[in-house]
Amino acid sequence: MPQDGALWLPLIVSAIGHCLPGAKFHDSEFAVDEYLLRLVEDAVLRDDDVNSAMNQTDNDGIGEVYLPIEEFHLAELPPPGEELDLSFGGHVSMDIDTERPYSGHRIPVQVALWLEAKGRVCFAAPRFEVLEAGLDYGWGDDEVPQQPPRTLAEALADALGLEVAEAEELVDIEPIVNESDDGLVYSYLFDFSEEVSPELAQKILANHGELRLEVSPAFFDGVRRADD
C-alpha cells in the first residue's frame, strides 16, 4: 500500500463509495457540523409553523437563520444501532419592510436532531423535527439584555484544561477564520505556537496535544466581549 496518505485515501473513499453509493464523506468534524447545519436550516425553512410565522410578518425577505447546533464529537456517538439525541434553539429573523406596519420579525425555533450510529465514526441520514416555532410578539417589552455568562478566557480555559488566570494570556491572540468564498464561516483556528510563554505552551501540549485549537462558530455563543 502506498505510504503517502494523499495517494491511498482516495482509493479507500472510492472503495467505500462503491459499497455504499449513498454515503457522504467529511474530512473533519467541522465539516460534519457544517453538513448538519445545512440540513437543519433546510428543515427549518421548510417547516409549516416557521413558514406560517414568516407570513405573519411584514417582511422584506429572510435576514438571518441562526441555529447553533450543540457541539458534539464523533467519538461520542453511541454503539451502532443506537441514537444520539440533540436538541437546540435558535431563530429565523426576517428583514423588516420599513414601508409597512411592524408586526414582528424574529421567529424563535426549537429543533431536535437524531443521529443513528452505524459505526465508530459514521451515522445514518440525520432526522430532524421542529419542536416549536412562532413569531416573537415580545418586541415591545422593556427587557434588559442579559450579559453573556462567560469571558473568552473562561471559554479557552474550558477548552484547553487551563486555569482562567492562565488562559488570560491567550485572549489577545486573534483567531484565523476558515471561511468559504462567499463568507460562510466554517471554523476559527487559534494558534498558540508563538505568543505564549514556554510554561503555558507545555501545559497546553500536555492537556490538548497541540498548540492549535480549532473551534466552530458556536464556540463564541455566550462569550462576553472584552469591552462589556
Rank of each mutant, 00 (worst) to 15 (best):
Val144Arg: 14
Val109Asp: 01
Gln147Ile: 05
Ala125Pro: 04
Leu160His: 04
Thr151Asn: 04
Leu162Met: 14
Cys122Ser: 13
Val121Arg: 06
Gln147Lys: 12
Gly140Ile: 04
Leu135Gln: 12
Asp142Ile: 06
Val144Ile: 13
Leu135Asn: 14
Val121Glu: 07
Gln110Leu: 11
Gln146Asp: 03
Glu166Lys: 06
Gly119Gln: 12
Ala124Arg: 15
Glu116Trp: 15
Asp142His: 10
Trp139Pro: 02
Val121Ser: 14
Asp172Tyr: 00
Val121Lys: 15
Glu116Met: 14
Glu132Cys: 01
Phe123Glu: 05
Ala165Pro: 00
Gly119Ser: 12
Trp114Lys: 12
Leu160Ala: 13
Leu113Trp: 06
Ala112Trp: 03
Gly140Pro: 00
Val111Trp: 00
Gln146Ala: 14
Leu162Lys: 02
Thr151Gln: 10
Ala153His: 08
Val164Ser: 03
Ala124Val: 09
Val111Phe: 00
Pro148Leu: 13
Asp158Gly: 04
Leu113Ser: 10
Asp141Arg: 11
Arg127Tyr: 00
Thr151His: 01
Cys122Ile: 06
Asp141Lys: 13
Ala124Lys: 06
Arg127Cys: 02
Glu168Lys: 06
Leu170Gln: 07
Gln110Ala: 13
Val171Ile: 10
Leu156Pro: 00
Phe123His: 10
Gln110Asn: 14
Gly138Asn: 15
Leu113Lys: 13
Ala133Trp: 02
Gly140Leu: 06
Glu169Ile: 01
Ala167Pro: 09
Leu152Val: 02
Gly134Leu: 05
Gln147Thr: 14
Leu152Lys: 11
Glu169Pro: 02
Ala159Gln: 02
Tyr137Phe: 01
Ala112Gly: 08
Ala153Gly: 02
Trp139Gly: 07
Gly134Asp: 03
Phe128Trp: 09
Gly140Asn: 12
Leu115Phe: 15
Asp141Met: 12
Glu129Pro: 00
Leu135Glu: 14
Glu154Phe: 01
Lys118Ala: 11
Gln110Trp: 03
Ala153Leu: 12
Pro149Cys: 15
Ala165Tyr: 01
Leu156Thr: 00
Leu156Asp: 02
Lys118Glu: 04
Cys122Gln: 15
Glu154Pro: 09
Ala124Gln: 06
Ala157Gly: 10
Pro126Val: 03
Asp172Gly: 00
Glu132Lys: 01
Gln110Lys: 06
Val144Gln: 14
Gln147Gly: 08
Ala133Pro: 00
Glu129Thr: 05
Phe128Val: 08
Gln110His: 03
Phe128Gln: 04
Pro149Trp: 11
Val130Asn: 04
Val121Gly: 13
Glu129Asp: 07
Gly119Cys: 11
Glu132Asp: 08
Thr151Met: 07
Gly140Asp: 09
Glu132His: 02
Gly119Met: 10
Phe128Ala: 10
Glu163Trp: 05
Pro149Gln: 15
Asp142Val: 09
Gly161Met: 13
Glu143His: 13
Arg150Met: 05
Leu152Gln: 04
Arg120Lys: 09
Glu163Asp: 08
